[in-house]
């Protein structure tokens, strides 16, 4: 429904705005089909790919970055929530890293790691790490101490308390954090590619912007948007599956 409304609005706008600044939905759709496997306009710049391959490149980077960030950020957030000294050490480092704009960070990464995918991946991974660190830490802070106390009085070891209380009790918030990180990661990955990359949706946008090929840019961004929305839907589904117990109560009668 919302998509139809958006399309209608877009179509309506094309009648007032010049074609060169706003292409019609139909022309963009046709352009996506044309460029999907191999884009002629791009081979002109020496880029022998299409939207599909570029999207795959970008998606792989985002997935790898979210994975890296989750593996580092979430456990670090949980651990620091329980050990004050470690928290005092890690907090300032990650909080500082989190406030540096990606535009400032990107040139350094390009110098250090080159224009390969590793640069963009690490840039996005840092952002994801910070988000998940904060989410996991907050989740561990907020979990009611009564659960841990109860587990200890029932005979649980420290390791079991982490496995049976701390992890499951924080999973919904951490998964929520992964969804937010994922949503932001698409944009950041595209920016990182704009700043310097050899492939990817961001690279296409950068090249076509040089040629003011608005239609081509729209086509690339639309593909990115559709994939991002689809991934968010998938993530939401996984979140709901992994934390079944956390659904709103259906009944509560005795």
């Amino acid at each position: 429904m919302g998509i139809l409304l958006l399309l209608a609005l877009w179509q309506a706008l094309t009648s007032v705005v010049a074609r060169s600044s706003l292409p019609t939905p139909l022309s963009v759709a046709i352009r996506i089909r044309q460029d999907f496997i191999h884009a002629d306009q791009l081979s002109f710049y020496g880029l022998n790919t299409g939207l599909l391959d570029s999207m795959a490149y970008t998606a792989t980077n985002v997935a790898a970055a979210v994975l890296m960030g989750a593996v580092v950020g979430a456990p670090l957030g949980l651990v620091t929530a329980r050990f004050r000294l470690l928290r005092a050490l890690v907090d300032p480092v990650l909080m500082t890293a989190g406030t540096i704009p990606i535009i400032v960070l990107a040139p350094f990464f390009l110098i250090w790691f080159g224009v390969d995918r590793i640069s963009a991946m690490l840039l996005v991974a840092i952002f994801v790490t910070v988000i998940l660190y904060v989410f996991a830490q907050r989740a561990a802070d907020n979990i009611d101490p009564v659960y841990e106390e109860s587990a200890y009085t029932l005979g649980a070891s420290r390791a079991r308390v982490v496995r049976d209380v701390l992890l499951p009790g924080t999973v919904p918030q951490i998964l929520g954090g992964i969804r937010i990180a994922l949503a932001g990661a698409w944009g950041l990955e595209a920016i990182a590619e704009l700043m310097g990359a050899q492939y990817g949706i961001g690279k296409i946008v950068q090249l076509l912007a040089g040629a003011t090929d608005v239609e081509g840019i729209f086509a690339a961004l639309l593909v990115l948007g559709v994939v991002a929305v689809a991934c968010d839907g998938l993530a939401a589904w996984v979140v709901a599956r992994l934390a079944v117990w956390n659904q709103p109560a259906r009944t509560g009668a005795e």
């Binding site: 109860s150 649980a156 049976d164 934390a243 956390n246």
Partner: peptide
Amino acid sequence: PGPSRGMVFQKDSVFPWMRVHANVEYG
């Protein structure tokens, strides 16, 4: 704390992420 001294808390201490029987089996 240890299993020789069981405790029922003022607040709800039943783990929301385990089914009822798993909670009772936990100790």
